[in-house]
């Protein structure tokens, strides 16, 4: 487990990643065995395998890591985390790196530039309605981020509509104000933490 003493020997960037993770990701235990990179379903499309990314984090290569498309190609299948012989919370690290990339403004520079837009659009919908609203999500995401691809998605949307698998309007939760209050408070707590 990472202790304050052992963390003090890591790169600044390594410490930043650990601090941003929800719980200790145990990154310092990495043996560089490659079980994660071998297991990853989208591994062949990543510019660095997860294993390589961890070596880069240890080496403090902040820019290269946050510009990598690797976290955005993570499909959250948890194979790597399940198989990791060192019980490193790899999927959590991927989420953490996505957040850091967005915050650092690097997300649009990766070779998976669409992913952050999709995530942000999704989040906006959930924050506004309390539930995901697929038609709105897809429409807004494609029109604002990928207008040229919108046509490609049209048949799918029509198919879903035809089978009554798509709502035409969002169905907000009843106590949306309560949810917004909770999320606003979370935002304040985050902001306060940034200041300290």
């Amino acid at each position: 487990m990472a202790t304050s003493a052992s963390l003090s020997r890591t790169s600044d960037f390594f410490r930043e990643v650990v601090a941003e993770a929800p719980v200790d990701p145990r990154l310092e235990a990495c043996l560089q065995c490659g079980t994660c990179g071998g297991s990853c379903p989208s591994g062949p499309d990543m510019d660095h395998t997860p294993r390589a990314l961890f070596a880069m984090i240890a080496a403090g290569m902040r820019d290269a890591v946050l510009r990598s498309n690797t976290p955005w190609y993570c499909v959250s299948c948890y194979y790597c985390m399940e198989r990791c012989p060192q019980e490193i919370r790899i999927t959590d690290v991927m989420y953490t790196l996505k957040r850091m990339a967005i915050k650092a403004g690097y997300s649009a520079q990766t070779s998976a530039p669409r992913a952050p837009g999709f995530a942000q659009t999704f989040v906006d919908h959930v924050e506004n309605y309390g539930r995901s609203f697929e038609l709105g999500l897809i429409t807004r995401y494609y029109l604002s981020h990928r207008p040229l691809d919108a046509l490609k998605m049209a048949p799918l949307g029509m198919g879903l509509l035809k089978r009554k698998r798509l709502d035409l309007s969002p169905r907000p939760i009843r106590q949306i104000d309560q949810l917004k209050a909770i999320l606003d408070r979370a935002r304040e707590i985050d902001a306060a933490a940034q200041l300290t």
Binding site: Y95, R99, A119, Q120, F122, R131, I173, R185, A186
Partner: peptide, 24 residues
């Protein structure tokens, strides 16, 4: 009156809000 769990997207944008969302 349950709300969305955040799927795999919310946690990629903000940690605390994602955890608060699910915790509600």
């Amino acid at each position: 009156d349950w709300n969305c769990c955040g799927a795999t997207e919310f946690i990629a944008v903000n940690r605390l809000r994602a955890y608060a969302l699910v915790s509600r």
